[in-house]
Design a protein around this nucleic acid. Structure first.
Length: 759
DNA sequence: GAGTAAGGTAAGGGTAATCTTACTCC
DNA sequence: CGGAGTAAGATTACCCTTACCTTACT
């Protein structure tokens, strides 16, 4: 898949026919190369075993520009063991057909006695970009003319990982403990090739790598906010040393760039706070003057803010820029107010771009002709605000983020009656009494990516994309809402994405994961797999008092090839609530059994050992995400809300709920009720329903039924047919609880509210 | 001494996050 | 009137690129 450009004569290439792939908790694929195979390629008689590194190769041809880039980190298992582990991470989009057709047909082991002299990255493509210092325009033009492109902008986590890994390897190879020794203490000669070496696998100019490394290891960087004392001292030093930032920084214990940046904000003549009309007028005049534009013209680029600030006199360049781009430019040109519809439009437009990386968005283009957009920069900041509605937006892929936001806002659009503002007054949560203090937690099974034809391993069995949101039905739902997106790469054979939800972490018990919130909300949910999937909610002190579990619509799943869901693969689904004090001795509060005819995947199947030409999806996540997004685009948003809903609640005090309680006097501790705002159609045991969702409410005096209650099967809700479209699609499922949710959209809308308010 | 690679500095545009302020609602 | 909540505006620490300079090596 990628090869080494500079193969020296000392390099020999052997092909290994099979390796074992596993996956670590980060979703990285670990390739285990058996020692015997490694030995086979060890043809040299040298007393010291040759270094080996791994090379994924599509064929014998050299790389071209379209070659997908996979970062490979090869780590020897031990000094004496010729086995090694390789971590691979896909870094660019890979066409899935390439994957499925097995274009990666060989894994080559290269051996070289001076491996690190060739590449620390093993198989990384040697980017001409990363090996060029180029800071001059000529250098850039030269590379551009040769068809090279390189990454700019903020470093991604993947890039930093690669960089750190490279540095680590460099240090290890030379027995150096601390990178700062090299960076700050060694002479140029001593650290020869350091930057070139660690730049492998990074499509950034060497200079960018150099700057990044300096920042990373400079302990005078990231010191934080300047204290008033520091500011005073900085002023003195500035007078004394002028623009000698290195000296000032040294005296202040700050990096040169830090003091330089801070000084940019400090102008004796600078005002702070609200701009006066006079200042605004002056700023506008200066901007138009310096850009040779007329009042009313949109000016967002080509402004020398230092020059503007100089002329404005009372504000710094940053202040001028911010004021202009975020307000004045728009005001001057007669822009319109930004509305909620604009927000939805923004998400839709971004989604339409179908970019896999946020950096690929052309904000200038996006902002063009959009009267309520104040500037491309402002639009981007607006996007940032929207994005932050998802708590862990940083942890998810861009397509997934878009997908979640799109769904969220589409639902809002479709269900304006469930806006947060209405929630606030209680109308958005008709099933709960706003005075009850009841909190809701929603868990939505979102979507699953499956590598077709392969059964999951036990550890990979639970690949349940879930979306969890907390909603308080108190007056301030937003305050308690948390939501985030999970991406799970469980096992080697399946990849899936999870919409905004909680972190799912392995617990150490095979097949058991712990769902954790990123906030202090304390909602540990334990998911266990086979043969029955169990969702266990442990009631932490701050835990919510309602749990709602959704299963995806069957259409959503079955319209895709990766229709593996809990419902599809397990004979039953049990949803339990447990008291916080004893989560381990989980007590069934409600059991929802969902028979499924679908046995497309056996959760207990042992893990497969992959052939080298079998590429796991994980490597191609970006592609899958693209697919996922496109699949999503085809879905009706409401479909996502179809499915099973189980809810437990401590206090169900609203009238409608009480009504239902009355109607279910035969189920003293179990209530079947309508979904939020939806009429309820209760189903008797074993009665099929034709509803999209089933709701089960289990009251508990503590939000969760005490573990000591030890509810057995008798106390489990009576069976009824669950009319889950998923199940219907797969034949008739027998279900325990049935309750109609006449308006899935309304629930959908609530999800949206939850998400919107989660930040 | 010239050429070149590597390292370095300063300027300034930009981003992401927090802080502050103004406003609204009760 | 005042407190709480919220959104918008302001601020700022840090990031990144560009242009140009310096140093060391061949």
């Amino acid at each position: 898949m990628s090869t080494v450009e500079e193969e020296s004569d000392t390099v020999t290439v052997e092909t290994v026919n099979s390796v074992t792939l596993t996956q670590d908790t980060d979703g990285n694929l670990i390739l285990h190369c058996p020692q015997n195979e490694a030995d086979e390629v060890d043809s040299e008689d040298s007393t010291e075993p040759p270094h080996k590194r791994l090379c994924l190769s599509e064929d014998d041809q050299s790389l071209d520009d379209n070659t997908p880039c996979i970062s490979v980190v090869a780590v020897p298992i031990s000094e004496n063991d010729q086995s090694f582990e390789v971590t691979m991470t896909a870094t660019t989009e890979v066409a899935e057909d390439e994957i499925n057709e097995g274009t990666v047909t060989q894994i080559q082991i290269l051996q070289n006695e001076q491996l690190d002299e060739i590449s620390p990255m093993g198989n990384e493509e040697v980017s001409a970009v990363s090996q060029a210092w180029f800071t001059t325009k000529e250098d850039k033009d030269s590379l551009t003319n040769k068809g090279h492109k390189w990454k700019q902008g903020m470093w991604s986590k993947e890039e930093i990982d690669i960089l750190m890994s490279n540095i680590e390897r460099y240090l290890k190879a030379r027995g150096i403990k601390d990178a700062t020794e090299i960076i700050f203490e060694m002479s140029k000669d001593e650290r020869k090739d350091f930057y070139r070496t660690i730049a492998w696998g990074l499509n950034r100019p060497l200079f960018a790598v150099y700057r990044r490394v300096l920042r990373m290891y400079d302990d005078r960087n990231h010191v934080g906010k300047y204290t008033p004392e520091e500011i005073e001292k900085l002023k003195e030093l500035r007078i004394k040393h002028g623009n000698d930032w290195a000296t000032i920084g040294a005296a202040l214990g700050r990096s040169a760039s830090s003091v330089k940046d801070r000084c940019r904000l400090m102008k004796d003549t600078c005002n702070t706070g609200k701009w006066t009309e006079k200042e605004e007028k002056r700023l506008a005049e200066v901007v138009h003057e310096l850009t040779s534009t007329e009042p009313g013209d949109i000016v967002t680029q080509g402004v020398s803010w230092a020059a503007v600030a100089e002329r404005v006199g009372t504000r710094s360049e940053k202040q001028c820029r911010s004021k202009w781009l975020n307000y004045l430019n728009w005001k001057q040109s007669g822009g319109t107010e930004w509305t909620k519809e604009d927000e939805i439009n923004l998400i839709l437009r971004i989604a339409e771009l179908e970019v896999s990386d946020e950096n690929d968005i052309n904000w200038d283009l996006l902002a063009e002709g959009w009267s309520s957009v104040r500037s491309p920069q402002w639009l981007r900041s607006k996007w940032w605000t929207i994005k932050r509605q998802i708590a862990n937006h940083k942890d998810v892929s861009f397509p997934v983020l878009i997908k979640g936001l799109k769904q969220l806002h589409e639902n809002q659009k479709n269900n304006p009656g469930h806006q947060l503002s209405e929630n606030k007054s209680g109308s958005g949560l008709p099933n709960t009494n706003s005075s009850s203090g009841v909190q809701h937690v929603q868990i939505r099974v979102a979507r699953l990516e499956e590598n077709a034809g392969n059964a999951p391993s036990p550890m990979a069995a639970l690949q349940i994309p879930v979306q969890i949101t907390h909603v308080s039905s108190t007056d301030s739902p937003a305050a308690t809402v948390d939501s985030e997106t999970i991406t799970l790469n469980s096992g080697t054979l399946q990849t899936f994405e999870i919409l905004p939800s909680f972190h799912l972490q392995p617990t150490g018990t095979p097949g058991t994961y712990l769902l954790q919130t990123s906030s202090s909300q304390g909602l540990p949910l334990t998911l266990t797999t086979s043969p029955t999937m169990t969702l266990t909610a442990a009631a932490a002190p701050a835990s919510p008092e309602q749990i709602i579990v959704h299963a995806l619509s069957p259409e959503h799943l079955l319209n895709t090839s990766d229709n593996v869901t809990v419902q599809c693969h397990t004979p039953s689904v049990i949803i339990r609530t447990v008291a916080a004090e004893d989560i381990s001795s989980s007590v069934t509060q409600a059991e929802l059994t969902v028979d499924s005819d679908i046995q497309s995947a056996d959760l207990t199947d042992p893990p497969d050992t992959l052939e080298t030409n079998t590429f796991p999806d994980d490597i191609h996540q970006s592609k899958l995400r693209d697919e996922e997004q496109s699949a999503y685009n085809e879905d009706d948003a409401s479909e996502l809300m179809d499915g099973v809903m189980v809810r437990t609640t401590e206090e169900i005090s609203d009238a409608s709920l009480k009504q239902e309680e009355d109607s279910h006097s035969d189920l003293p501790s179990t209530y079947v009720t309508e979904d939020l705002g939806s009429p309820t159609i209760e189903e008797q045991v074993d009665q099929p329903t034709i509803d999209d969702e089933t709701v089960l409410i289990v009251p508990s005096s503590h939000g969760f039924i005490q573990t000591t209650d030890d509810i057995d099967s008798e106390s489990v809700l009576p069976l009824t047919t669950l009319t889950d479209p998923i199940l219907q699609h797969h034949g008739d499922g027998s279900h325990i609880i049935g309750s109609s949710l006449g308006s899935p959209d309304s629930e959908d809308s609530k999800d949206v509210e939850d998400l919107v308010s989660c930040h």
